[in-house]
């Protein structure tokens, strides 16, 4: 077999390549540039080597933010994936109910992220917010601007409200694409609902679940807008995730070197964990 070499193809690939270069590679290289040098502005740079990386990797503040970030993603994934799957399984498969459910599910996804943060900020206010007031009325002391636990609870609740729909829609699409014959065969074979789920639905949903977990992991690991609007990282540093910490370092303290080093470490962590998830979940598919 001979491979056809088509040099004209480059003409079509080039625009995309240029676009990716401008919006991803070049900015990333700038960050790399900052991460190994010290600057005081005026485009004057001093070589710093790996100093910033060492500083970031040894800093307790970074460790704490990373810990909070991992905890947040873990909690959010542990709730949203099973919940989304359960809702998708419970959704109707035909009739008017389908459209109603799909529209309801899509709504949270259509709201701008800062609006989501603002909505929950107001909703959870202990004195005037519906949720905050209701919880306090039950006799539970709840104030997310003062209690770290309350802040986390609100943050997780907001994320679940905002993003479970994505998991639901992905799973639902996966479920309706399973041919009827599988369910019919299962009926004939005398399979109970659990067996249908375990041996038909779950295996057939493997790919969409992988996508759902990856998307939710990456997004939750990078959460910024909603968190900043809801708590601004507080109370204290209780909800200061990596992204918030990064912005504080870069724009609050104007420590460009450490911020750049932190960005690169942050990026590599996401890249590595995504690769790990993907590899683990796809491991058995080919065999």
């Amino acid at each position: 077999m001979t491979k056809t070499v088509n040099n004209k193809a480059w003409v079509f690939v080039l625009p995309v390549f240029v676009m990716v270069a401008f919006n991803a590679i070049i900015p990333l290289m700038t960050v790399v540039n900052f991460s190994v040098q010290e600057t005081f502005g005026d485009n004057v740079f001093f070589w710093a080597g790996v100093t910033w990386f060492e500083q970031v990797l040894r800093s307790d503040r970074f460790h704490a933010a990373l810990g909070r970030q991992v905890a947040f993603s873990a909690i959010v994934l542990a709730i949203e994936i099973p919940l989304g799957l359960a809702i998708a399984l419970a959704m109707p498969r035909k009739g008017i109910g389908v459209s109603i459910c799909l529209v309801l599910m899509a709504l949270p996804l259509l709201i701008p992220w800062n609006v989501v943060g603002a909505m929950w900020n107001i909703l959870a206010l202990p004195d005037i917010g519906l949720l905050g007031k209701a919880i306090n009325a039950l006799g539970i002391e709840y104030n997310y601007t003062r209690q770290p636990y309350a802040a986390w609870f609100t943050m997780v609740l907001m994320d679940v409200w905002h993003w479970t729909s994505l998991v639901v829609l992905l799973c639902y699409a996966g479920l309706v694409s399973i041919p009827d014959a599988y369910y019919q065969a299962a009926k004939v074979d005398g399979a109970r609902a659990w067996a249908v789920f375990r041996y038909i639905q779950l295996p057939k949903l493997r790919h969409v679940l992988t996508i759902a977990i990856l998307l939710r992991f990456m997004d939750s690991f990078m959460i910024y807008t909603e968190a900043v609007v809801l708590t601004g990282g507080g109370p204290g540093n209780a909800t200061t995730f990596l992204s918030i910490d990064l912005v504080k370092t870069a724009l609050g303290q104007f420590d460009l070197g450490p911020a750049a080093a932190m960005s690169i470490v942050y990026f590599l962590i996401i890249l590595f964990l995504s690769w790990l998830f993907y590899t683990l979940m796809m491991r058995n598919v080919e065999s």
């Binding site: 014959a181 019919q184 065969a185 004939v188 074979d189 005398g190 399979a191 295996p203």
Partner: peptide
């Protein structure tokens, strides 16, 4: 028992478990 137009198999199981499935249920 019914055999359908498109082969229905339980992907994650071995051939043995597939055949045993109706009995085990």
């Amino acid at each position: 028992a019914q055999v359908f137009q498109f082969p229905v198999i339980y992907d994650t199981m071995t051939v043995y478990d597939n055949l045993a499935f109706p009995l085990r249920n």
